[in-house]
């Protein structure tokens, strides 16, 4: 392996050539703050919070865009660096509403966490604020520009990973805004509601709509596999009182932090009162709850009877994209060899 030797915060390390300082530090357990970086995206270097001091290199350098070099001496939390981060956070919070008490993202907000860590209170420069803009046209999530810190993650995820390009930047300088073309709203854009922008928003600008009120620290998370299709995306269900209140994509799985609209937002049926949780069997014209054993017995006996009375081709089977390949294979196998018909199809083919 091609490596370089360097010093970070007084300790010697040997790190693979071409690694960015931010990644190198995170690998060895040094936490450098950043609001705009995402390993999956081209580094943008826009939030400037990850700046570090490199001895002999003059001004500060952003760790997300600087590669490790032989002999580098890096300080990730020197006085100069900490001061710069404090000033940058001061600038950000000065142009941000202080409504953490009612903000859904409180407790899961990077700006809040970093201001806490670096000791920034309400902001020195609470003068002109960015123009308010609120987009609530999407059925699954909302966008509040006043909370947006313009890190650009949503725009870049939509472009680089999702390939939808529904949102972009509008205007420039202090007037810059994340927006859909002509400000016509997400509903009227090419947005597919995948919510991958929502998943990366470090603050409360992009928020999923929720039917239930909850605080971020009240929730439990449970890793599970999305059951909407056979891809098997991993995700963390956020639950409060045993009720799902949100979904976050898993970053350490093959879906690499991405989900689709179904995985991200379609969980309300789980606790819907109409949802079937027990098998039902019709007795004397009325559906009544029963056991799985009884239900299977009813199914098999009726199938046998039907095959005898009307023949194999009286059956037709339709299976679902929500099942795995293995399940689908078994289903068609059952139809072909047990029931003896080729009348079997799959919804994804439609």
């Amino acid at each position: 392996m091609n490596t370089v030797k360097l010093t970070i915060n007084g300790k010697q390390y040997e790190i693979e050539k071409g690694t960015f300082v931010l990644k190198a530090c995170s690998d060895i357990g040094i936490d450098i703050p950043t609001m705009c970086h995402d390993e999956r995206l081209v580094p943008s270097g826009s939030c400037r919070l990850c700046q570090v001091e490199v001895e002999g290199w003059g001004k500060l350098h952003t760790a997300c865009t600087t590669q490790v070099k032989e002999g580098m001496v890096i300080h990730t939390h020197s006085e100069k660096v900490v001061k710069a981060r404090q000033d940058l956070l001061d600038m950000l919070i000065s142009n941000h509403p202080l409504d953490c008490l009612t903000c859904e993202s409180a407790g899961a907000c990077k700006l809040q966490d970093l201001c806490y860590e670096y000791g920034i209170t309400e902001g020195t420069y609470r003068w002109e604020m960015s123009k308010p803009y609120y987009d609530d046209t999407n059925p699954f999530y909302t966008f509040d520009a006043s909370k947006c810190i313009l890190c650009g993650l949503c725009v870049r995820v939509c472009d680089e990973l999702q390939g939808t390009n529904a949102i972009g930047f509008e205007n420039r300088g202090f007037e810059t805004l994340v927006a859909t073309p002509f400000g016509e709203g997400l509903e009227n854009s090419t947005c597919v509601s995948c919510g991958n922008c929502v998943s990366v928003c470090p603050v409360g600008a992009l928020e999923p709509r929720s039917k239930m009120k909850f605080r971020q620290w009240e929730i439990e998370t449970t890793r599970t596999t999305c059951s909407y299709c056979g891809v098997g995306c991993q995700m963390d269900l956020k639950t409060k009182n045993n009720r799902v209140v949100g979904v976050e994509p898993a970053f350490d799985a093959h879906n690499e932090g991405l989900l689709c609209v179904k995985g991200k937002f379609s969980y309300n049926f789980l606790s819907h009162p109409d949802r079937l949780t027990m098998p039902l069997v019709r007795k004397d014209g009325v559906l009544v709850e029963t056991t799985w054993d009884e239900a299977y017995n009813v199914i098999t006996s009726k199938m046998k009877q039907t095959k005898e009375d009307f023949g194999s081709d009286s059956f037709a089977g339709l299976t679902s994209a929500r099942c795995t390949n293995e399940d689908n294979y078994m289903f068609q196998k059952m139809f072909r060899s047990t029931l003896g018909t080729n009348n079997v199809d799959h919804c994804a083919r439609l």
Binding site: S44, G45, S46, C47, R48, L49, D87, L88, M91, L92, S94, N95, Y125, W127, E128, I149, L150, G152, F169, N171, R172, G173, F174, E175, T176
Partner: peptide, 19 residues
């Protein structure tokens, strides 16, 4: 007026200096 708005110090900082 001419700041592109990409990075925090130029977008927010020059604005505050001007104010």
């Amino acid at each position: 007026d001419e700041s592109c708005g990409k990075c925090v110090p130029c977008r927010e900082g020059t604005k505050r200096m001007h104010e």
